[in-house]
C-alpha cells in the first residue's frame, strides 16, 4: 500500500512573459518599471511543479499539497484567482518582494522558514517541489538552498519525470547536457525536486476546485506575514536591456534554388 506524501511547492509570481520589461534603479537597487502594474502569472516552472505535485498527490491517497509563495500580497491574490482553479492545494502566503533582483540566498531563507513552520507537515514524508529556475531571477539556486536549510540532502534539478515505484522508491529523470536525462533512484523521502517542464499539460480550470481552494487561500493571504528579503553585500553596478537592433536584410522574390544556394554557402562558411 502506498504511503501518502506531504508535498510542498515553492513558487512565486513573475510578470506575464508577453509584457515589455524595463529596469529602473531606485534606492533599494534595481527593479522593474511599473512592477506593481504589470500583469503577473505563476512562474512557469513552478507551475509545472505544482501540477506535478497535484498529479502525484491524487495517485497517493492521504497526500497533501501546499504552495508556499513569496510575493506582494495584492499580486498574489490576483494570480491565485486563476491558479486556484487548476489543482487542489493549500496556500502559505508570504508578503514580500518577487523581484528577479532579490538574492536567492535571502529568498531561500524566508521560504525555508515558512516550510518549517507549516503545522502538521510530516518532514519524513516531505517532497519539496519548485521550478528549477524562475523566469525572474533565473538563478537555479533557490531550491537547493531551501532544501539545505531543511536538512534535505537528496536533491534533483531539471526534473522532467518522477515515478513512485511499488516499493516506495522514486525514479527521477533529470535534464543533463546534450538533451539527455540522468536516471536516478531515491529510496525514500524527504527529497527536493526542481522541476523543468515535466510531461503534464496545464490542467483545465475547474470551478469546484477553485471554490474549495479559495476557502483557504483568502485567509492565508490575510494572515500573510511581511517578509523582508535583504541581501547583505550584494550591489548592482548596472542593469540594462540590450538595445542591439540588427539591420535585417529582407530578401523577397528570390527563387528557392537561389536561397538554398546562399544558405548552403553560409552554412559551410567557417
Amino acid at each position: 500500500m502506498s504511503q501518502p506524501f506531504h508535498i510542498v511547492v515553492c513558487g512565486s509570481i513573475v510578470p506575464d512573459p508577453l509584457q515589455m520589461l524595463e529596469p529602473v534603479t531606485g534606492a533599494a537597487g534595481p527593479a522593474l518599471k511599473n512592477e506593481m502594474m504589470l500583469p503577473a502569472v505563476l512562474d512557469p516552472w513552478a507551475a509545472h511543479a505544482l501540477f506535478e505535485a497535484a498529479h502525484l498527490a491524487a495517485k497517493h491517497a492521504g497526500s497533501k499539497v501546499w504552495l508556499v509563495s513569496l510575493g506582494p500580497k495584492a499580486k498574489l491574490q490576483q494570480v491565485m484567482l486563476t491558479v486556484a482553479q487548476k489543482v487542489p492545494f493549500e496556500l502559505v502566503a508570504l508578503d514580500g518582494p518577487a523581484s528577479g533582483f532579490c538574492d536567492s540566498l535571502a529568498t531561500a531563507q524566508v521560504l525555508a522558514d515558512a516550510v518549517a513552520g507549516i503545522p502538521a507537515l510530516n518532514r519524513d514524508r516531505l517532497l519539496l517541489f519548485g521550478g528549477w529556475e524562475s523566469a525572474s531571477r533565473g538563478a537555479g539556486s533557490t531550491m537547493q538552498i531551501v532544501a539545505e536549510r531543511l536538512g534535505i540532502s537528496e536533491q534533483f534539478q531539471g526534473v522532467d519525470q518522477l515515478t513512485v515505484r511499488e516499493d516506495g522508491s522514486m525514479e527521477i529523470l533529470e535534464r543533463v547536457e546534450g538533451g539527455r536525462h540522468l536516471v536516478s533512484v531515491c529510496s525514500a523521502p524527504p527529497a527536493a525536486f526542481g522541476w523543468a517542464t515535466g510531461h503534464l499539460p496545464e490542467p483545465r480550470n475547474n470551478p469546484q476546485v477553485g471554490m474549495t481552494n479559495m476557502k483557504t487561500i483568502m485567509p492565508a493571504l490575510q494572515r500573510a506575514k511581511a517578509s523582508a528579503v535583504a541581501a547583505d553585500g550584494l550591489r548592482f553596478a548596472a542593469v540594462n536591456v540590450p538595445k542591439l537592433q540588427r539591420q535585417t536584410r529582407v530578401v523577397k522574390d528570390m527563387p528557392p534554388e537561389e536561397i538554398a544556394r546562399e544558405l548552403v554557402a553560409w552554412i559551410r562558411e567557417k
Partner: peptide
C-alpha cells in the same frame, strides 16, 4: 535576468 531579457553587473 528575466529570462535573458536584461543584463546586470553585480559585485
Amino acid at each position: 535576468f528575466y529570462r535573458q531579457r536584461m543584463e546586470g553587473t553585480l559585485t
